[in-house]
């Protein structure tokens, strides 16, 4: 499909456009967090604890008197950064293994497939929990844990797609011309399976952000006073009856961010690879 036609269809795809707007909004917020946030995200002032939303504190304050609005604004940086890094790591691992398994087949394929199935066999959240606990709670370890438990879906799909095209005439021709395996994989196969990879990547982002905030909610993500959305939310549970805003607003931010990526992913799938099953 030509770029121009794709562009035209993208403009017509409502889901994709709404997602794109949400995504741009989040990016702008994350980049300009310093100028948007009215207060510091970590400065405490007990005299202003648990205040309801007002013009000074649009989302209210928490038990330490910190501005929830500012914390949510700064928290977008954590969510976005972790999401992007996680997806970068898991897609590189997953795509590389998928290409290798699909291209070479045989024993290598069977070994990779077994590891994939094994990773697939356990509930990812439980595995991630176990891994972060072992490594110690920190953002870096959250990235590692989520990447370790979620690369497998890339491998599965990339493997099947690679198998499907590796015997096509143009690949055979490249082989006949003496191209190295590495060149064939990176220059001939990869560009031809880019659509599903792009769709998978955009759909992996929202789930990575959800997992990150879940681990944050359980206290395993960025450590206080860092404004991790999941953590802010879980701290709010203790005050849910008197200060529900602490939990409500970070939750809305998570939903909007994840929704934005989901809509982009769904839209891209419709545009690029409508029959791809994720």
């Amino acid at each position: 499909m030509s770029i121009k036609k794709l562009y035209k269809e993208a403009l017509r795809n409502k889901m994709f456009m709404v997602g794109l707007v949400l995504f741009l909004l989040i990016v702008i917020i994350a980049v300009f967090a310093g100028s948007i946030a009215p207060h510091s995200y970590k400065e405490t002032d007990v005299t202003k604890a648990l205040l309801a939303p007002s013009s000074e504190f649009p989302f209210g304050t928490d038990q330490y008197g910190r501005c929830i609005f500012s914390r949510v604004i700064f928290g977008s940086r954590i969510a976005l950064a972790v999401g992007l890094v996680v997806v970068a790591v898991e897609s590189v691992i997953g795509v590389a293994l998928g290409l290798i398994a699909g291209y070479y087949g045989g024993k290598i394929d069977r070994i990779i497939l077994f590891i994939t199935d094994l990773t697939w066999a356990m509930p990812p959240l439980i595995m991630a929990l176990a891994i972060v606990t072992m490594l110690g709670p920190s953002l870096n370890n959250v990235v590692i844990a989520i990447a370790v438990v979620s690369w497998a879906q890339f491998t599965r799909i990339v493997r099947t797609k690679t198998q499907a095209i590796k015997n096509m005439p143009f690949i055979e021709a490249a082989r006949a011309f003496g191209e190295s395996d590495f060149n064939i994989i990176t220059r001939y196969i990869l560009p031809n399976i880019l659509s599903p990879i792009i769709v998978l990547t955009t759909l992996a982002l929202p789930s990575a952000i959800l997992s990150t905030t879940s681990l944050g909610f359980l206290g395993l993500g960025a450590q206080p006073p860092a404004p991790d959305w999941g953590k802010i939310l879980s701290e709010g549970i203790d005050y849910i009856e008197i200060a529900p805003w602490i939990s409500i607003f970070p939750g809305i931010s998570i939903v909007l961010t994840v929704l934005g990526f989901n809509l982009i992913g769904e839209g891209l799938r419709d545009l690029l690879d409508p029959r791809l099953k994720v």
């Binding site: 909610f217 999941g230 939310l233 879980s234 849910i240 970070p250 939750g251 998570i254 939903v255």
Partner: peptide, 9 residues
Amino acid sequence: SMPPFWLGI
């Protein structure tokens, strides 16, 4: 797109 913990809350 809803985190289950937030839905719960």
